[in-house]
Write a protein that binds this DNA or RNA. Structure first.
Length: 390
DNA sequence: TCTGGGGTCCTAGGACCC
DNA sequence: TCTGGGGTCCTAGGACCC
């Protein structure tokens, strides 16, 4: 019998900070930015902070108004990743099949583990105790016959909860919920729900697949049809399709100057190139993102015959896109760069793809990109001068 | 109170080929 | 002589998630 656990750490970043700084315990902790950081948003709010109405994605400035006595932190992603890895390893002791969904949540396939850990609730209880003992963190757990329903269940058990949907009870469970509980239906979709007077999953359940598809489009129609029946979501299964990597930066104050903006693009390229080499990916498609001061967002991408092999090559392609796309004089609040359709590049390359000069440049760049991880400013200056900029 | 950063997936239209 | 149908790749924009 199929059985899945969804394990989700409670207010992860804020909880880690409270563990590292016991003086924060019991206090409203808001990770995402300092009170004076312009244009920052809340990444995670501790449960104490949520009582004031502070929640994820809220602008820091608004959080400060709601909760002036809060402890505001920018956060330390590297540290959170370390803690996350430790917990994911621990999850591996309870199931051979752990599917990490994000930094703070994972699915565990626990079919056939009964002999070792007892019934699913007993396993979940042991897992919660171990996470608490070894890290001090609390985790909320959902148990169901498929991943989708397990995820909904864990969300309803927060914080520090445990919620099991009995086998076969998935459909009745989903139908009993308001539409707000549907994972995968965000603000825009909820607007359509309101427009059609759909308040509960049962309201959606009563609509035919044809009706749902005509209202929400083919893919979303099928998704909703299955979701309210408590059926597994394709999104959580199967092998991932195409990969991409991107980097972007929002500026505290809008930029107008091309030289400054192209410096930023170079900076973004360095980070991407470093990761591309580290993670052994290859890409032929470069993308650019510009968000103007009025929040309108434009993007451009171009696919080339040959993959990106050097920082110089990546920067040249990105700047060409930028010079074509940027509406001169408009204030820019965000610039982004990306590499799409990544392919595994771990296999030996065909030598003819790269000429000798290119190969020399790649080796030099790799060394400098490495240095850049430690001394960002020095490396940036050096590259700018190499690129012949003023 | 103006709206982060890093991802995935979907849609619609165009180019191109058979 | 007035225009099919399917498949694939590409691009721009959007919705959504944590």
């Amino acid at each position: 019998m199929a059985c899945f656990i969804h394990a989700d750490l409670d207010a992860f970043y804020a909880s880690v900070e409270q563990l590292d700084h016991p003086e924060y315990l019991g206090k409203p902790v808001i990770v995402g930015g300092l009170p004076d950081d312009r244009r920052s948003v809340v990444s995670t709010a501790s449960y104490e902070a949520r009582k004031f109405g502070v929640h994820s994605a809220m602008p820091i400035a608004q959080a400060v108004k709601l909760c002036p006595q809060g402890i505001y932190l920018r956060g330390n992603m590297g540290h959170y990743r370390e803690v996350s890895e430790k917990i994911m390893t621990l999850f591996g002791d309870f199931s051979p099949e752990v599917q990490q969904l994000s930094i703070d949540e994972a699915f565990l396939d626990i079919a056939g583990t009964e002999g070792l850990f007892g019934p699913p609730e007993a396993l979940a209880q042991k897992l919660k105790v171990r996470v608490r003992k070894e890290t001090g963190l609390t985790v909320s757990v959902g148990i169901a016959g498929n991943k989708y329903v397990a995820k909904i269940a864990s969300g309803m058990s927060k914080p520090d909860g445990l919620y099991r949907i009995a086998p076969g009870g998935e459909e009745a469970f989903m139908r009993s919920l308001p539409v707000a509980n549907i994972w995968g239906a965000g603000e825009k979709t909820r607007e359509i729900f309101r427009k059609y007077g759909l308040k509960t999953c049962d309201d959606i359940y009563r609509l035919s697949l044809e009706t749902l598809s005509s209202i929400f489009g083919d893919a979303s129609g099928v998704f909703l049809y299955r979701a309210v029946r408590g059926e597994a979501a394709a999104a959580f299964d199967g092998e991932r399709g195409s990969h991409s990597m991107s980097a972007e930066r929002t500026f505290a104050y809008d930029l107008y100057d091309n030289f400054t903006m192209e410096s930023v693009l170079l900076n973004l390229c360095e980070g991407l190139m470093w990761r591309l080499l580290e993670e052994k990916w290859r890409s032929r498609t470069v993308s650019l993102k510009i968000r103007y001061k009025d929040f309108t967002t434009e993007s451009a991408q171009e696919t080339f015959g040959n993959p990106v092999t050097t920082l110089n090559g990546l920067y040249d392609r990105l700047v060409a896109l930028f010079r074509k796309k940027y509406r001169a004089g408009k204030g820019v609040r965000l610039l982004g760069a990306g590499l799409m359709n990544l392919e595994w590049a771990g296999l030996p390359q065909q030598a003819e793809l790269f000429d000798k000069e290119d190969e020399k440049e790649r080796l030099l760049e790799k060394v400098i990109l490495g240095i850049n991880q430690k001394f960002p400013d020095a490396a940036l200056r050096r590259f700018r001068s190499r690129l012949g900029e003023p």
